[in-house]
Design a protein around this nucleic acid. Sequence first.
DNA 1: ACCATAGGCAACCAAAAGGTTGCCTGTCAA
DNA 2: TTGACAGGCAACCTTTTGGTTGCCTATGGT
Lengths: 104, 104
Amino acid sequence: MDLVFKALADAGRRQLLDALRERNGQTLSELCDELSELTRQGVTKHLRLLEEAGLVVTMRRGRHKYHYLNPVPINEIAERWISNYEKDKLRALSALKAALEEES
Amino acid sequence: MDLVFKALADAGRRQLLDALRERNGQTLSELCDELSELTRQGVTKHLRLLEEAGLVVTMRRGRHKYHYLNPVPINEIAERWISNYEKDKLRALSALKAALEEES
DNA sequence: ACCATAGGCAACCAAAAGGTTGCCTGTCAA
DNA sequence: TTGACAGGCAACCTTTTGGTTGCCTATGGT
């Protein structure tokens, strides 16, 4: 799960995920067009991290490499991690509020 | 939102959040006990990032500094970002499956 | 057969992250 | 009032990260 969090920490990588969510199965070159501020190698590196985190699955076909979004890891973070915080949200908020009021 | 993602990218910081979720309003020294593998300064630095991301709110009271969890930013990520991926989950999964099958 | 296209590999570089040590300040309690 | 306790500041160091450039390989079209 650590790899997923780390992968999500970069805005460029999140942008890549968004691009794939918008249109799945894009090639490297196509993704490079969307992140025009980076060189191809830069994009490649980001994609490798995303792949290592399991967020993207790739398929080489002839001279093209297609990238597919895998939504499962994000889903797991939502379920296994974030939901714990949702659960305690109200309790934490009221504790926070109480602490801030006491500060006066 | 970028700060929140970056803050969540480190396992030590997530551990600090967990500690506060477990017991809210802990002092720096108490939190240091839970992350015994780090020095106090190390913990302080992590807490500063968490605070800058809005995930933790602090209150100095005499010679103690109390730390409170703020669940709102995590909630926002869940709602504004992750939910987009949940929405497209089935579609992305079937695209992925189709691509993998075609590979044979 | 050839050349343009799509991508990979490796070295390199600068900046940021993670962590430490040493010392200083403020606060409470005996 | 003096000492122990809680925390802050700043310098420093090492590793990781984000990015680049240069060159090499493989594939497909004409």
